[in-house]
Amino acid sequence: MNFFEPFKQISEKSADDKKPIMDAISDPTFQPTKPRSHLAEETPSLLTVIVDTAPRLWAELDNERNQTGKIIDMLKSLLVFLNAHLAFNSSNQVAVIAAHSQGIKYLYPKSSSNQSNSLKGKDLSIINNDMYRQFRNVDETLVEELYGLFQQEKEQADEVTQKSTLAGAMSAGLTYVNRVSKELETISFKSRLLVVTCGSGGGRDEIFQYIPIMNCIFSATKLKCPIDVVKIGGSKESTFLQQTTDATQGVYLHAESTEGLIQYLATAMFIDPSLRQIIVKPNQGSVDFRTSCYLTGKVVAIGYICSVCLCVLSVSPPGNRCPACDSEFDERVISKFKRIKK
């Protein structure tokens, strides 16, 4: 009779039998197991804040609401918001540019040229000495620079301001974004721009900002940098800035006042670029894409465009010439135009 004895046997696969190995390659376990979900990856980001500090606008807002020091409230909220951004990821960065009445100024990072008139020892009481250093360094510089800025504003109170410098600040902000993303090419780095403006006045000077702002929009889309806008007070709408956020996948928000501003900032404005894909953007309103007639200034939905300079007309131009570029139109075109108008 046969017998069986249980024992461990070692079966050896011959070395030249490559088949199982080749099978193993096609085996799914051999395939890279790391799912490359880009969402889970945490990338540091740069937040560039453009803040409109033109005193005239803020004074108007104060008058409107019979309160004072709105700008201070706003800046306080902004400081906390910057800290929040720095808290989000330890390698996050911030930059702040002020668009004041006479130009633009980097509040953070500090440019080394104005180091000489440093305002050390000034009133920095709103900053706690025991604060987290990373926050404190930013906050301290910011307050210091702001102090200098307001001093300057006091001196130049009678200088004329014909237009807002916001577009210039936005342009500078974009160059800064461009610089940082070039410097940190090796790590995937994301950026966004936040514009804080105060909207009384009803956009009288906006017209001079149109082309520069549009140029900023295109550059921002090229840089894949969303632009968020917070508008405090004034009218709810801001045509150009709304178009900005729409074209760059940003968020537009209108706040009645500075009360509770931090809550707005900490939610709607806190969407990190890495979260943009999965978070529902809060603005879902209609956006006005209409434009204005060059001659009458009225908002038009259907207009006539000069094929040379692209200016928009709603009425027959005087002298059959384009009012902007002086190109002469055919008699035929004009008559057709007039016929339709009637």
Partner: peptide, 23 residues
């Protein structure tokens, strides 16, 4: 130089001119 290239190729705005308060 980097800004010069960026400004002329992409931005088409001079940040300096745009931040002047006068027209």
């Amino acid at each position: 130089i980097d800004c010069d290239v960026f400004i002329h190729e992409i931005l088409h705005n001079c940040p300096g001119c745009e931040s002047k308060p006068t027209i």
